[in-house]
Design a protein around this nucleic acid. Structure first.
Ligand SMILES: [Mn+2]
Ligand SMILES: [Mn+2]
Ligand SMILES: [Zn+2]
Ligand SMILES: [Zn+2]
Lengths: 140, 140
DNA sequence: GCATAAATGCAACAGTATTGCATTTATGAA
DNA sequence: TTCATAAATGCAATACTGTTGCATTTATGC
């Protein structure tokens, strides 16, 4: 797995303590993270506004994509493919576990093609599934 | 189209002025409505908290379903099929227009079947599309 | 090391949603 | 129709989420 430091370089982002720590969080977790999740871990070290702005910068540069979670919360996750500030390629499914509340990117499941009624121009598709995740199922 | 009054009766909801007016709004609009939309029309007549609680009651009884709109706003729309307080059957697509900001239920487009990786139990699927709606396309 | 632009921290603010409680209202039974 | 009761409402207070402006600090290239 790539180091936070070199990733920031690749994406044209300055290497600050806050950004390194936030990116490390994402690199060491498989799940999507909300601002509140990050604040819980790093809130005593960095201002909440800075965390917001960091997430926004990361998304802007194609390092993260945002997820409008089924719970209503906005979450963020690492982009898997070669996303850049010009184009995102995150056409995968998001799975939200109703038991543990975590959200995962299912990068291996692609969004199927669809035909909408005439008159509608589609620019983006978002597909999310809700249920019990792997870990919670295994725990029973 | 059914009258608001008889609908409230069918769904076991008391017939109050507020509920009748809010339900009338939904019956006379094809689009999904956010709390703010309703408040804009009825805010001088009913308290905003009452509007929140009305929407929640309607959803609870299976009269409305909520949509986590791509814009981040929570919107509500009439359930089409025989939804009840026990079970919702709203497995259709939601279309959000990036131009006019409106959200529509595309009840005629059903969500295709999908296979998720082993270990995940799926209980609900949510599919949303983003683009230019029929009306906005026609206007050009 | 230095100049500069970018990033940060802090305060203020706006929008959205929730809770508690007193008052009002809809409903079914008398 | 009246009445008792539970449900619905209005209002105030509060919490949560996100944004903006500005002074200060920091990373970066020279
Ligand atoms: Mn994702
Ligand atoms: Mn719908
Ligand atoms: Zn889980
Ligand atoms: Zn439109």
């Amino acid at each position: 797995m790539k180091q936070a430091k070199e990733l920031l370089g690749e994406y044209g982002l300055r290497k600050t303590k806050c950004r390194l720590d936030i990116l490390d969080l994402f690199l060491s977790h498989q799940q999507a993270l909300a601002h509140a999740d990050i604040e819980q871990v790093l809130g005593d070290r960095y201002d909440r506004v800075t965390i917001y702005r960091t997430l926004y910068s990361f998304k802007e540069q194609g390092l993260l994509h945002s997820i409008n979670d089924i719970s209503g919360a906005v979450k963020f996750a690492l982009c898997q493919e070669a996303c850049s500030q010009h184009q995102h390629y995150d056409n995968h499914i998001h799975f939200s576990c109703t038991q543990c509340g975590q959200t995962f990117c299912l990068n291996e499941v692609h969004i199927p093609a669809m035909t909408l009624p005439a008159g509608y121009s589609v620019h983006n598709l978002h597909f999310s599934a809700e249920g019990i995740c792997k870990a919670c199922n295994a725990r029973e």
